[in-house]
């Protein structure tokens, strides 16, 4: 492959999954653009109270 690859990734969606993808990539040496349509990241998990099965706080 001769084509020059671009060392950046666009992550679409700032829920728990998108955020963690972005973190993993950024921590492994890739530049990340995290794109979220809402005014804040966090997604549905931020709206939850507790999580099963440990009843830990979702925040």
């Amino acid at each position: 492959m001769n084509k020059q690859l671009i060392g950046s990734v666009v992550v679409i969606g700032g829920g728990i999954s998108g955020m963690l993808s972005a973190l993993d990539l950024a921590n492994s040496g890739y530049y990340v653009y995290l794109v979220e349509k809402g005014p804040s990241i966090g997604g549905v998990m931020a709206q939850l109270d507790k999580t099963f099965p440990t009843n830990d706080c979702a925040m």
Binding site: S8, V9, I12, G15, G18, S21, A22, Y33
Partner: peptide, 14 residues
């Protein structure tokens, strides 16, 4: 934006 890959994680709607 020019990027090498895309991760699409749009989630769901209740």
């Amino acid at each position: 934006i020019n990027a090498g890959s895309i991760i699409y994680s749009p989630g769901f709607t209740p």
